[in-house]
Each structure stands twice: as C-alpha cells, then as structure tokens.
Amino acid sequence: MKFAQDLKAGNVVVMDGAPIVIQKAEYNKSGRNAAVMKFKFRNVLTGTNSEGIYKTDEKFEDIILETKEVTYSYADGDMYVFMDAEYNQYELSKDDIEGILKYLEEQMPCEVKFFEGKPISVTPPVKIVREVIYTEPAVRGDTSGKVMKPAKLPSGYEISVPAFVEIGEKIEIDTRTDEYVSRVK
C-alpha cells in the first residue's frame, strides 16, 4: 500500500480491480498542515481517463510492474518514442506521459512500465537539472531564499524558485513534487 502523497506520475495502482496509471499528480497544502493530491488517471484496460482528489493520507494498493531503463528519443505527432539499450523502441501517447512532458528532453533517461507486454507509463529520474530560460530579476537585498518567484524552463513550464535565481542558471528539481531543490554550478 502507498499513501496518496507518495504516488507520482507513472505509478500504477488498483482501483475497482483495474490497473490505473497515474498520469499527473499535483500536491496542494490545505488547512491545519493537511494536504490534498489531485490525480489524473488512465484505466489501462479501457483507456478511459478520470480525475480524483484525495487527502494525502489516503491509502492505495500499488502494483509492481515490469520496467525497463530507456532514454527519450523523439516525438512523432502525439506519440513519444523511447529506446532501450538494445535499440528497441516503445511508443507512448501524449496522454500517457502528460505528467512528465514538462521535463522531457532528448536522451533523458527514464523508466518505462509495462502491463501485459504493453508500455503504459514513463517515470522520470527523481532529480533532474534544467536551465532557467526566463525569470524576473531579484529584488535587491533579498537573499533569504524564502521569497519565491516563477522561473520558466526550456519546455515552457514554470516552477517556483528562490528570488536569487537568475536567467541562465541551472537548477535541480525534484520531479516527485515539482519543487526547486538547489542551484547547480
């Protein structure tokens, strides 16, 4: 069993007897130190999509599936192609990998999960490094790291970073929480 707060895009859980891929996971702080998770699901058997909102302490039965180390190769329309060390290619749809599109770059190492021989989801590395391509200049004197501001990544995705981060700098991101970790020199 896994708590909702430990689930991330690419994980597979059982609901109503069916394997369900988590395509997107968002964390939000609620009141009195509680928090909620918003999931976008895809039923592996029927292909239907759904959403769910859960407290972080809700328990889910997760499934361990066959996995393979791959790298992202290229996009062909709405299909995304990943390749393993033996040059086998695996195609996944945009919906299948929605949660990680914001981090996807050519040759990015990932893990593909298979259900009955079919690739169903992709999990990115826990920590990745990306360049900040745009952010507002820092306010003078604010070096505490507590004040955050939006910063744009090459994919166009925005992430909150401390005010001292500047354009062109590389930052480490935790893909489980989509949070800034540190600057990379």
């Binding site: 859980v13 059982v14 609901m15 109503d16 968002e26 939000n28 609620s30 009141g31 009195r32 509680a34 909620v36 918003k38 759904s50 959403e51 769910g52 909102i53 859960y54 407290k55 809700e58 328990k59 889910f60 039965e61």
Partner: peptide, 22 residues
C-alpha cells in the same frame, strides 16, 4: 469531506470532484 476554506486558485481545480475511494 468538507475541507478548509482557502482563497488559493488551486481550490477551484479540486472542488467537488467525485473520486473513487480506493
């Protein structure tokens, strides 16, 4: 599950979405 009051934008995206209880 009646939740806490908040003015944050994410509330609108999470409000009143019937969710299968695992």
């Amino acid at each position: 599950d009646l939740e806490y009051l908040s003015a944050e934008d994410w509330v609108k995206t999470c409000h009143a979405i019937p969710s299968y209880h695992p």
